[in-house]
Design a protein around this nucleic acid. Sequence first.
DNA 1: TTTATTAGTTCAACAGTTGAACTATATATC
DNA 2: GATATATAGTTCAACTGTTGAACTAATAAA
Lengths: 147, 147
Amino acid sequence: MEQRRIYELIDKYIELTHEVWKNSENLIREEISEDLTNDQHYILRYIYKNGKATTTGLAEAFSVQKSAITAIVNRLVDKNLIMRTYDEADRRYIFLTLTEEGKKQFEKTEKKIFNLVKSFIIKFDREEIENFIKTYEKLASIIREIR
Amino acid sequence: MEQRRIYELIDKYIELTHEVWKNSENLIREEISEDLTNDQHYILRYIYKNGKATTTGLAEAFSVQKSAITAIVNRLVDKNLIMRTYDEADRRYIFLTLTEEGKKQFEKTEKKIFNLVKSFIIKFDREEIENFIKTYEKLASIIREIR
DNA sequence: TTTATTAGTTCAACAGTTGAACTATATATC
DNA sequence: GATATATAGTTCAACTGTTGAACTAATAAA
């Protein structure tokens, strides 16, 4: 590929990712902010999908320090959406699980986000969106390798 | 498209965008954090590309309140990367421009980000990345319409 | 001239983040 | 078994970014 075109593509990529991410996050926030912040929802999402989680596991998954997770989890525990339970086999571990209220809250919030994403995903024809997701997956794994 | 497949695609989209964005931002932060935060760089980027900016313009472009822009701009002014100048034609307006140091800093930082993005963009063949960007642009304009 | 609007800042309050210091538990080494 | 090391998690101070309300200053409209 010619240098010039590569340059243009990179430039567009940088601008597009920033714009799309920012706007999406704002749309999501408008939908859910009365109940949760976006980051709080992503934490609930991780625990919901995995059944349980640890501080260290979340810190790795979200690429942040453990203290950042502690802070968010504290807020979710205060809201009675998450529970902490010691692992009796190794008491250094604390398992984070969703309370019943946490599950309900997640499902409610996720549905709103889901419908939002759906509203723009359905504007593409099937082939285009399939290819887009396929490339996105490749991109994710390339970035995973770099880290 | 069948409901089930749509569901899967939306689910993947939500997970992929979050993972890719988070990881990319972290990679960028590792590259530039000694000089600038990521958001500070994006503000410099906007002014650099447009020559000048106003608080209101930046607030709209970044979809945040004006006070958020004031805070970031203050830090950049403190670092002597941005200048404020009153518009003599309408003294309500304050134009934000880059100082010489600001331009240099931006170019230096942008180059690092550029090379980072390049390192994963070049792993795709031309057609794939062209299609990806094309769909991304469509996505951006759909989201722009929704807002 | 009075009232509206517009551009921008200030401020308090909050979420999220890092990084260092800390506690508590478990594992390795002598 | 005692000491040293490693691991999981929290606490804390400091910082960035954010909202939203109250404010100042300048311009436009009535």
